[in-house]
Design a protein around this nucleic acid. Structure first.
Lengths: 190, 190
DNA sequence: GTCTATAGGAAGATAGAC
DNA sequence: GTCTATCTTCCTATAGAC
């Protein structure tokens, strides 16, 4: 009784993120967010005066930072294009827990909050990602227009494989997607 | 004041479906469902004693029936495989309003209700769909194993393109997917 | 079968002690 | 900064008239 809880900022965002990814914005209740973080509701409000909306917003922002550091930076690295893509696949595998966890971009894009405060952030993340993917393929000698097409396809198949994996109750589709990804992107250029 | 409302059963399911597809299970409130159908809350409970869960369940079931009639039946038709696939694409275009409306299978698969009463229905719909797609490709002379792969890819890209379209705020990805679908499925066999 | 009215409970948010 | 306790609002669900 009366024990204080505390978590560092990164863990806090991770745990909030987990809830939103599992049940979406409307599905997430303060009780769940409190339980997941170990912080009582009032403590969450101290850290996030804007309540649930602010939590989701900051989780989305931190997802953008994560993408920047773990996906975009490696993609912009100086190794062989194929190696950079494979490194991305490894990062994605960990991030989505091998296909067990959904994508925040999907789960938050339906929030029925006044015309979506999340829409803009979601769009920016998608755009940055595709940009970086297309750049890698350009490095590998893929035509610019074709590179953009493949980049979009890659992101689309990632999202689709996560939806399908969840619907089917197996992570196989996601895992197969990850394995096929390097070839999808760098097809004739490997 | 005091006017009675009434809708036929099919319209009723359509309008309920619309709400669930827009905001998901948790996001849908009885107030929204009432507004969308023109029936007061108590009237909805008369028609669906099991409340919101029953509504979602019946909407999902009717989506299965719709798929059977508008997608699976044409796929099993006797035209050329390419024509059957193109007919499916037309039906999908209408069903998803050209990419403006989300997929129920995605929106309901996160319902945080006791271990998901929807999971089973969702899985069955996915399976039946892939089965029918693979059969068409088999008819077109595609190897059985390859046919299944392409069928899964098709469903995955449909889901992904809808997620991506919503996230990007444009229907272009979905429309491009639909256009590419016949070639994706019947690639070297057209 | 549809309605108005309301009960009952869960959820978001706040006050104030420590 | 975290807690307990409480407030208010919204939501699910029911009662009962027409």
């Amino acid at each position: 009784m009366g024990r204080k809880a505390s978590v560092d900022d990164e863990q806090l965002m991770d745990r909030l993120s987990c809830v939103f990814r599992d049940v979406g914005y409307e599905g997430a209740t303060l009780a769940m967010l409190s339980e997941a973080t170990g912080l009582k509701k009032a403590s969450l409000y101290h850290r996030f005066p804007g309540g649930k909306e602010q939590m989701a917003r900051e989780v989305l922002d931190s997802a953008g930072v994560w993408l920047e550091e773990h996906i975009l930076a490696p993609l912009k690295g100086d190794g062989a294009p194929a190696d950079r893509v494979k490194e991305m696949a490894r990062q994605l595998d960990a991030f989505y827990s091998g296909g067990k966890q959904a994508c925040l971009l999907n789960m938050l894009s339906s929030a029925r909050i006044h015309e979506g405060p999340f829409t803009k952030a979601i769009k920016q993340i998608f755009e940055a990602w595709i940009e970086a993917l297309a750049a890698v393929m350009a490095d590998a000698g893929v035509d610019k227009r074709e590179a953009r097409n493949r980049a979009e396809r890659g992101v689309i198949m990632l999202q689709g494989s996560l939806v399908f994996s969840r619907g089917m109750g197996t992570t196989r589709p996601f895992r197969e997607f990850l394995k096929s990804l390097p070839n999808e992107l760098l097809g004739g250029e490997l």
